[in-house]
Design a protein around this nucleic acid. Structure first.
Length: 224
DNA sequence: TTCCAGGCAATAC
DNA sequence: GTATTGCATGGA
């Protein structure tokens, strides 16, 4: 029995398809975050791959709601694309992304990423992404998985918290150790990876607000 | 008011 | 190599 796969099925049955990565789109007249559950045809073009990558950088240690504000600011001015980020002045970029926090460093990182992206003519490799200032393991894996459909499992603080709660990993497990644990116990399917990471985030968000009894129940079920 | 969110780089030891 | 610290807004 594969515990990793078992947890996935449990989460999927509980929460259903999550439709990550969200894109900014119009919904009855105004721009908002839009998910597309059970539709793996996204991203549809280069601009959407770029948008996902920018979102991955902006959401570092930041609530998505704040990132959404920043992305909408850019989208409204047709700046949510590689050319737009390259051409906008850095000081003005800081203003536009202010709601997402850490706006000084994030503006620099967006600029660096956009310049690199503009000359990209192949699917990026993990090492290339990690070499860019401002892109660490989680951001790199998010870009590979959600922008390029490459089955590279994304680990975040929630993932570790949940697995540590289940006593499947140690508290001091490294990023790569946890990543490999998932990758060695799952078929190499980008759809499964995309869904699984999103489900872990969704579960952690709800679950850590809920009462402790619910936590105990979840642990029991998943250890069967 | 305090705490923290879909991390990362720089610095300290 | 591992531990700590700065970065910043907005919502609970």
């Amino acid at each position: 029995m594969n515990k990793i796969l078992q947890i996935y099925k449990l989460l999927y049955n509980e929460y259903g398809p999550q439709g990550w990565w969200p894109l900014i789109a119009y919904k009855n007249g105004k721009l908002t975050t839009k998910y597309h559950p059970s539709d793996f045809s996204y991203p549809k073009d280069t601009d959407q791959r770029f948008e996902i990558s920018i979102g991955a950088i902006l959401t570092q240690n930041t609530a998505w709601k704040n990132v959404e504000k920043a992305l909408i600011n850019l989208k409204k001015q047709e700046l949510l694309n590689c050319k737009g980020i390259i051409e906008i002045k850095e000081e003005e970029l800081k203003n536009q992304i202010r709601p997402s926090g850490y706006y000084n460093q994030k503006a620099e990182r967006l600029k660096i990423f956009a310049r690199w992206f503009s000359s990209l003519n192949h699917k990026p490799k993990r090492e290339e992404l990690l070499a860019l200032k401002g892109i660490g393991p989680e951001t790199a894996d998010s870009i590979l998985l959600y922008a390029y459909k490459i089955p590279s499992f994304v680990v975040d603080a929630y993932t570790k918290r949940i697995l540590y709660g289940l006593k499947i990993i140690d508290k001091d497990s490294t990023y790569d150790e946890v990543k490999h644990l998932f990758e060695q116990n799952l078929p190499q399917d980008f759809r499964l990876y995309q869904e699984y990471h999103a489900l872990l985030v969704e579960h952690a968000k709800r679950f850590y607000l809920k009462k402790k009894q619910d936590k105990e129940d979840f642990i029991k079920v998943s250890q069967k």
